[in-house]
Amino acid sequence: MIKIAFPTEKCAGLEDVVHTRFGRSPCFTIITLDEENQIKEVKNIRNPGYEAASGAGVRSVQTLVDEGVNIIAAPSLGPNAAVIAQEMGIKHITIPSGIKIREALETVLNEIKKES
């Protein structure tokens, strides 16, 4: 089962837009796909890194590890977040910021298909 996390602005699911900064986004939208890559669940969570004074990226990754996420789709990861994500076996897929989650998901699905 694939779980993809997107940094988002308003915790508004598929209609939300991709936030520019991974560790500093107010929310994460987590999409769970079934075996046929169809959307099974859409979940919004608050990002604890949003208000953290330091270590925002790492805190964010920790939350996503706890949620069982295996792909982070974001414009970029900070250096610490990138290292931790890799150590935790989470893949990063680069997507542009400002686009709807619905569109961003298409990009991610294409990447996944390309790899399998």
Binding site: S54, R59, V65, N80, E87
Partner: peptide, 19 residues
């Protein structure tokens, strides 16, 4: 305090030396 320890999916601590 520095957020240098991340718990893995298996709930084991992972220390990120740089932080």
């Amino acid at each position: 305090d520095t957020g240098a320890i991340v718990m893995t999916r298996e709930k084991l601590p992972f220390v990120m030396a740089r932080l």
